[in-house]
Computed example of a mutant assay.
Amino acid sequence: MGKSQASFGKKENEKKRLKKKNDKADRKEERQASAKKGQSLDDMMAYVDEFGNISSTPPDPNRKKQEIKVEDIRIAVAKQEDMEQDDPIRKGTVAFFNESKGYGFIKDQETQESIFVHANGLLNPIKENDKVTFEVEMGQKGPTAVGVKLAVKPAAPEAPAAPTA
C-alpha cells in the first residue's frame, strides 16, 4: 500500500477549518440562548421628550405642554431676505497681476481676503497696486473677481481762475 497523499500541512489546515466551524456554531448557540424571546411591544418602544431626548418611559399625559409659535421655528439656513444685503461692489488693491498669463489677485479692503482675478473679468487693463472696484462670484476653486475696473479717483478741485484785468 502507498502512503497517504495528505501531508502534515493539509491535516493542520483541515483541523483549523473544523475548529473554526465548531467555534462559529458555539457562538450561534450562545446568541440564541441569550436572546430575549417574546418581548412585548412596550418593552421595545422608545419615546422622545420635548427636548429630543430618547427615553424608555412614556410622557406624562397630565403634564402641561409648552406652546410654540410656528413662526419661531427655523429649520436650516435663514431666508435670503433675513440676511443683511451687502453692497455687491467691493473695493480693493491689485496685489499681483501677470499680464502674460492673464491672471492675478486682488486684496479686498474690508476683509483683507485675496481674491482671484482672470483677464476675462477685467473691464479696464490693470497693474499691481492699482485701486479697483469689483464684484465677487464663486468660481470652480473659490471666489473670483468679475467686472473689475479701476476705481474712479475723485477729481481734484480746480483752482479758481486768476482774474484778468
Rank of each mutant, 00 (worst) to 15 (best):
V48H: 07
D130G: 05
K127H: 07
M138C: 02
F96H: 11
F96M: 08
A78W: 11
T144R: 15
E71K: 11
I68M: 15
G102E: 08
I73P: 10
N124Y: 11
Q66F: 09
S40I: 09
N120A: 09
D42S: 14
F51W: 09
G102T: 14
N124C: 05
Y47K: 07
E110C: 08
K79I: 11
S114W: 05
G92W: 04
A145G: 01
P59E: 07
K131Y: 03
D87C: 05
D49G: 00
L41E: 11
D108L: 02
K141Q: 06
S114H: 07
A145I: 00
Q140N: 09
A119W: 08
E84F: 15
Q140C: 01
T93W: 02
T111C: 06
K79R: 07
E99C: 08
I54N: 02
E128S: 03
T57M: 13
Y47F: 09
G121W: 07
I68S: 14
F105Y: 08
A95E: 12
I54Q: 08
Q112P: 05
E135A: 10
N53T: 09
D43T: 03
K141I: 00
V70G: 06
I68R: 15
N53E: 06
D49Y: 00
Y47H: 11
G104E: 00
P61C: 12
P61Q: 10
E135D: 00
I89E: 13
F105D: 01
D49L: 01
N53H: 04
V77T: 02
F116G: 01
